[in-house]
Design a protein around this nucleic acid. Sequence first.
DNA 1: CTGAAAGCGCTTACAG
DNA 2: CTGAAAGCGCTTACAG
Lengths: 347, 347
Amino acid sequence: MESKKITIKDIARIAKVSHPAVSMALNNRPGVGEKKRQEIIKIAKQVGYHPNLVAKALVCNRSYTLGLIINNISDQFYTDLVKGVEKAADEIGYNIILCTTNESLNSQKKYLDILQSRGVDGIIISTVLARDPHISLLIKEQFPFVCINRVPLNRSLNNKVDYVILDNYSSGYKGMKHLWKLGHDRIAIITGSLNASNAIDSLEGAKGFLLEQRLKIDPILLREGNYSRREAYNATKQLIKLKKPPTAIFAHDDNMALSVREALLDSDLKIPEDIALIGIDNIEMGGLTGIDLTTISQEKNEMGYIGAKVLVKKIEKKAPIMVEKIVLGVDLIIRMTCGYSRYGYKR
Amino acid sequence: MESKKITIKDIARIAKVSHPAVSMALNNRPGVGEKKRQEIIKIAKQVGYHPNLVAKALVCNRSYTLGLIINNISDQFYTDLVKGVEKAADEIGYNIILCTTNESLNSQKKYLDILQSRGVDGIIISTVLARDPHISLLIKEQFPFVCINRVPLNRSLNNKVDYVILDNYSSGYKGMKHLWKLGHDRIAIITGSLNASNAIDSLEGAKGFLLEQRLKIDPILLREGNYSRREAYNATKQLIKLKKPPTAIFAHDDNMALSVREALLDSDLKIPEDIALIGIDNIEMGGLTGIDLTTISQEKNEMGYIGAKVLVKKIEKKAPIMVEKIVLGVDLIIRMTCGYSRYGYKR
DNA sequence: CTGAAAGCGCTTACAG
DNA sequence: CTGAAAGCGCTTACAG
């Protein structure tokens, strides 16, 4: 009792025309008279015709589908990114196949292969590592893709990959400057995954500011947090047990900052009285009253949105052959966790 | 300079066999000698063959792709749901096309059509309305789908749709009971979208408990929040301005509860001293120190996971023809926003 | 403007 | 076990 799928051949039979005529009529192409066209469209509606996009994709070699590779849907940073990509995709009539790697390189490779096999027209990848082994293959195969959030750092790929990223260097720089101006000299940093460009850049930015002040970070205050809430929590617990504990912690994303906060509060430390805290990303939850996380705002939505647009431009070859490199600006968002509102800048 | 896609015909030429032989070899089917099989597999690897899943889907009428329709990726409730679906899909080798409707029925219809056209093997839909106009068509067409989170309430569809939902009635009941036992008599409710079964059931549960106590809710304390943060905020502002304001607010999801909290704090009301607050869902952010939202825990992840498994069972027809109706239990999570820890139950 | 043929990259079914 | 044919539902290119 399975209801058979209705195809253009069925419609052709009813309309007494050839099936290519139906195809042309439905796709608004010349090759069929206006009267016939209207008749065919009417019949298609009546019989509830759904075009088979799989067949169409096979013959046109275009699926109007994009792959999106992210790390972790539970991290609001990625949620916002997905939202931006979806908005763009919706506007231009593409659909999204969502793939989550959980920071696994094997998983990334698996999804890259699957997405290509599934005939997506291009891939938006937010999980690339600094020395990513997969990107060069995509380039060699001339498969359309765009990096967002993170870029490969191999020199040889420098002018070959389109990307849309955040100005992570400035995020690190501005966060550090804020803490320094508040009088902090002993600042711990909990970084992202240091094999990823965004984390590397944030750290460089933080160090860059210190360098300008002829300061250096005490290596014991530098912890790799891998964007993991648990690692951030544990790192914080260790940091505050130090003989000379930090007076401030700079977590290189808000997701980790929230865990740092939990760790501090669990240890009965007051923020910012006992220790200051600043994050990066400006995720929505950081702004809740009582959290009031000072942070660096980043245009996550825009990054996804623009990334998708850049990719589709490439796919549709509407632009001349060129590589687009887009860097979105960042801003300091002062809330309560650094104590600025109470003390103001000291220097 | 576009690099041509490698197909089984290319491999066939190299291996000096017919292309169906290659297909059989690569799919581990009988019909080709073991030696040849190994040779073919080796060649495929060497030339970097990616099978064209679009072609495969066309001939097999199976794409190993699932559609997932949600309302709003920014709501952590849906994020968790997506995560569960993804986990199941990953385990069984399916990919997910993600569609977001933002509570728009037109959008839901659009995506339902697109997903079918795209040849997904089935659809997981979490956005169905109580009187949903689209579900009966899916049933008529015998298109595999499963409802999660929400179900249609039309009597005629009663025994025709598979679903995995939460025990929303109990969520409403348990939340109300908790507040009542703490001594509250004037409890406001901010509901979800009352054209959706989950919101209706939660409200029924809350009313159900009151009825047992021979109590009724004052209509002025009942507000439809539509799962929107803004509406919850505004509703709260109105509620506290009432001549007889409520002593407690029961928000029918945590996302709204967080906005209620903002509205209360913005009005300098203390939680729970001035007014108690309870949500539903147990989203991660509600558990942060300083938020400490009392809530009803729900197995959002499990709902997605089981939903996907039920759907695939149906698609693969491994089970006898039957309808699965699964209801997941819920639990009261006592934290700080109702003041239980300070006062204990009064009755 | 109209119709019949060829083909997208696969798999299935059927001769040898 | 092996090979050639047919077909999935479409679109494109080419005769009439």
